[in-house]
């Protein structure tokens, strides 16, 4: 039995053995200082937003790093073939791009990488269409290299929308094939 089993304070127990337990951790007494009314000090949020904004001039370079990782993962797939490992590597790179893009003011790259993640995640590996994967990667790469930030670039908007439609169509087809099988 661990020290936690020994120290657990069970507050209620059901007939079948389920237990409700008070956490022994108490941050409140260590980190909260109450002065007057019950509002929350919002100063830390402002300081954190400022700290984050201070990184913004590095975002274009970081986006270049992220797309380089995705292009590299695609090159490995070309070299090693489509395996679970190469599929996972591409997914990881696309997922990272999806997570970063909107925050780094490349929302359309986020849309394209989200479409790519959905495709890789939901279509069986033996049905994954490499040309469509390549189109996604090339579109994201072009948006970043052309610095198509924001959502005002008409070509990028159209491209992102078309790739999303193509990806959804393939996913739907894959699901219906699976259902028939």
């Amino acid at each position: 039995m661990s020290k936690h089993n020994a120290a657990i304070a069970v507050t209620s127990q059901s007939p079948s053995g389920g237990q409700l337990i008070d956490s022994p951790l108490n941050f409140r007494k260590h980190v909260v200082q109450v002065t007057g009314n019950n509002t929350l000090d919002m100063g830390p949020i402002e300081r954190a937003e400022k700290a984050l904004a201070g990184l913004a001039d590095q975002f274009p370079t970081w986006m270049q790093d992220e797309i380089a990782a995705l292009v590299g993962a695609r090159a490995m797939l070309q070299y090693e073939g489509l395996t679970e490992a190469t599929r996972q590597r591409i997914y990881l790179a696309a997922h990272n791009l999806r997570g970063q893009a909107q925050m780094m003011n490349f929302p359309l790259v986020g849309t394209v990488s989200d479409s790519l993640c959905n495709l890789i995640d939901r279509v069986p590996i033996d049905q994954l269409p490499l040309p469509i994967i390549d189109l996604h990667i090339e579109a994201a790469r072009a948006m970043i290299s052309e610095n198509a930030s924001g959502e005002s670039n008409g070509v990028a908007l159209k491209l992102a929308a078309q790739l999303g439609i193509a990806s959804e169509g393939i996913i739907r087809k894959s699901i219906s094939t699976e259902a028939v099988d």
């Binding site: 507050t11 409700l20 337990i21 008070d22 956490s23 941050f27 949020i45 937003e49 997570g99």
Partner: peptide
């Protein structure tokens, strides 16, 4: 994601001010 300072702040504040009991 996307990350925001407010969203992370709110999660931490919730942990500090409103700690959850545990279920076993």
């Amino acid at each position: 994601k996307p990350l925001s300072a407010k969203a992370l702040h709110d999660r931490i504040v919730n942990i500090v001010l409103n700690p959850r009991p545990f279920v076993r």
